[in-house]
Design a protein around this nucleic acid. Structure first.
Lengths: 199, 199
DNA sequence: CTCATACTGTACTGGTCGGTCCAGTACAGT
DNA sequence: ACTGTACTGGACCGACCAGTACAGTATGAG
């Protein structure tokens, strides 16, 4: 019983991410889930509710993804190494095609599902900079950096790292960065950040 | 004759920006232009072509908008003042509701109109960082800053300035920054940038 | 005055899609 | 064996919408 619900949710996620909200048909969702359309309606009130649950389920999982970013941030290696490792994971993560698709979807449907997308933002991008701010505050108190305003500094570093790549990936199809492009960019960004916030 | 074309283009632009591609009806466009639907089809082959011309017309105008950014960048005031003025204009400009709508539209339709959106990106965001890179190269050669890689540095500054605000504005409805928020953020960003790229 | 061109308004076609209905089937727990 | 619940598959409704057809009107150039 719950297996069907799960199957529907999974294929709905794939289809919504690939085609967007309007272009995704509930007939397609049913077919992709090997389920009758009626079953879709037995498990979800309507298309909007299905979409909401898809996004909510992704939002819920984002906590897990953030853990992978948190780890290098609070290790005992030098600040520079910590930030570079964090930067590499952040950029490679955010540039993954499915993540780009998700962002595109969220942005496109923000006017139609304001609260939903806001909640998604808070649990994803929002949390990331909070995390970084905490790490920077700690680095400051350890005397590794001089960061009087950790929140502002976290925004600076986070968006220095992925602003350009993100903006481009969202609009320019097939604008992939090679791993070496990424490390070069991360190195440059972290170096600039360290110069700006050195003790 | 061309007056009708212009009227259609104008109301189509408004509607596409407000509602997105799918949700905009050609009946609505015709009504908003005070024109018969047939006239729309006499002036534009079909919906996709109309949309393309709307985006192209915006792309074409973007050169004019960039001029307002260029001005403070090449004045003879101190670097800091130049960058702060540039930053304020850039951020306030990009955060304007219509510009956010445009970005949302471009991102949402990037998969459907890849070449079109790529062209838009090159003429808008792409050109902006090129412009900034030129200014930074000049500042370097004047000895005001030390910028070995002007392109990379331009990305750092540009997205430090607007990455966070942009990301948030695209997803969180009604997340407006007050003018004082903007200047505070710009001041912080430019200060950090100057520390990182001081001579 | 004339004729071509652009425009109007409305009705229509054809297709899509969200959502419902229904008759029948698989299968659980009791 | 009995009953409730979930599922199937396919037909169906109603609305919407891109694009066309058509008969008639305004207008401006020669």
């Amino acid at each position: 019983m719950a297996r069907k619900t799960e199957a529907i949710l999974t294929s709905a996620r794939t289809l919504f991410l690939e085609r967007g909200y309007d272009a995704t048909t509930l007939d397609d969702v049913a077919a992709a889930s090997n389920v009758a359309k009626t079953t879709v309606y037995n498990n979800f009130r309507d298309k909007e509710h299905l979409f909401s649950e898809v996004i909510e389920s992704i939002t819920a999982r984002s906590t897990v993804i953030l853990a992978a970013l948190e780890e290098p941030l609070f290790s005992d290696s030098p600040v520079e190494d910590r930030l570079i490792e964090f930067g590499n994971r952040l950029v490679t993560g955010v540039l993954q095609p499915s993540v780009i698709q998700l962002r595109r979807l969220a942005i496109a449907e923000a006017p139609r599902f304001p609260e939903l997308v806001t909640r998604f933002w808070s649990h994803g991008p929002g949390r990331t900079t909070e995390l970084l701010a905490r790490a920077l505050r700690e680095a400051d108190s350890r005397g590794e950096l001089r960061v009087p305003d950790p929140n502002a500094a976290a925004l600076v570093l986070a968006y220095t790292l992925l602003g350009a790549a993100l903006d481009r990936a969202l609009m320019v199809q097939g604008a992939h960065m090679s791993p070496s492009d990424i490390t070069a960019h991360v190195d440059h960004s972290v170096a600039a950040f360290l110069r700006a916030y050195a003790r």
